Amino acid sequence: MRPVVEAWRISPRPRTTHTELHWVRGSSKSDVRTRGHEWGVADRTLGELNWVEVDPARVRSSVGVRHRFTPAMYYWQRTRSHVWCESQEERRELLWLDYGGQVERLWSQPFAISWGRRSRLAGLSHFPDFLGQFIDGTYGLFDVRPKARIDERAKLQFAETAAMCELMGLRYQVLSGHDGRATGNLECLSASRHDRCRPSPGVESGILEAAAAGQSRRALCDLVSPGCPPLACEWVDNMAWRRLLDVDLGAVFSSDTVYTTSASALTSMAH
């Protein structure tokens, strides 16, 4: 699998006074050699740039990671495209971002940050892991680092990145992991996140009504598909993924796992 363009070596300008962003302009389908290397000072004006039009190129930068090949891809259904991840940790964090429902679009390693002389990281560069566009149209950066691996150097890098984002008017968040069992359960639900697993409106209403006081997964499946209960499993899980049903992700999943109609779904039913 070769999901990304061949690595493009961005060479930030040395000894800059201000912190700068460097990126490669052009369509993700164009030849990387025909793209132009662009840069700008990290300020409010650059923060208002329409990054959808810029279409940031993904650039591999981590030490020890082979170019052209990747250990993980995540299918981002909102844009019907795969998001490239350098590690399974990054892919798991995208799973949680997807479940949260607040991010509309994602780009991997969209640009390089070249720290200026006024920064405590002067002379160094950093490639944020992801650039996201939220459902309200605003943008934000994400860095992924397991909590156990956040040392003093990483804390400094994240602090400087957060300060730069504040200057540019971008959001910023360090994603440092979730409970292993909860992540595994969310992986199970995500298998039914696609539209093909969505139940019909009538079936969905029946499930919401039945689960108002809480029902086991087995009971819900027996109720809406008595002739073939396994057929309803993807319907129930799809509704849990869409947060129409609440479920304890930290508990062991089984046929007796209880699904309960969410407060937001109950409000919608009342109207």
Rank of each mutant, 00 (worst) to 15 (best):
S27I: 02
E6N: 13
D136R: 06
D246G: 06
F142P: 02
G227T: 11
L131H: 02
L95G: 07
F111W: 08
A265V: 12
P56N: 12
V65N: 00
W76P: 00
Q173R: 15
D151A: 08
V224N: 14
A72G: 08
Q88I: 06
Q133F: 01
E20N: 03
G177W: 04
W107Q: 09
R181H: 05
G101Y: 03
R198Q: 11
D151S: 01
T45E: 14
V252F: 10
R58W: 13
A270N: 10
H67C: 04
G180R: 13
R2K: 10
G177E: 11
R92H: 14
L21H: 07
L220I: 00
G100M: 07
A270K: 08
C233M: 07
T267E: 06
R9N: 14
L21C: 10
W76V: 02
L97W: 08
S225L: 07
S200L: 08
R60N: 01
D179Q: 07
D256H: 12
W84L: 01
V32M: 14
T257Q: 01
M1K: 04
A182E: 14
I113D: 04
G26Q: 01
Q109I: 13
S190L: 06
L220R: 14
L220T: 12
E209A: 12
C233T: 01
W51D: 05
C85E: 06
F158Q: 14
T161F: 00
P230N: 13
D129I: 00
D222S: 10
L21T: 02
D143G: 11
W241H: 07
E48S: 12
T17V: 03
H67A: 01
S268R: 09
C233V: 12
A122G: 03
E160H: 04
M73D: 02
R153C: 02
E166R: 12
S119P: 03
R25N: 07
S255T: 00
L106S: 09
T79Y: 05
E209N: 10
A240Y: 00
A57S: 15
A72Q: 07
R60F: 04
G101R: 09
G100V: 09
S30R: 08
V32P: 15
C188H: 10
W23A: 13
G177N: 03
R91D: 11
C165W: 10
A159I: 03
I10L: 09
R91N: 10
P128N: 04
W107H: 08
H178Y: 05
V52A: 12
L46I: 09
D98F: 11
T45F: 13
G100Y: 02
P199L: 00
P229F: 10
Y139L: 12
G214V: 03
S216W: 01
R193S: 15
V63P: 01
S87K: 07
S262I: 14
V59P: 01
C228F: 15
L266I: 06
C221L: 11
L21V: 02
Q215G: 05
S87T: 15
R193A: 15
G36V: 10
A122S: 02
T261P: 14
Y259T: 13
W84H: 09
Q109K: 11
L220E: 12
Q215E: 09
G100F: 04
E152A: 14
N50L: 05
F69K: 03
G177D: 09
G169S: 09
N50P: 02
R80K: 13
Q133N: 05
W84T: 08
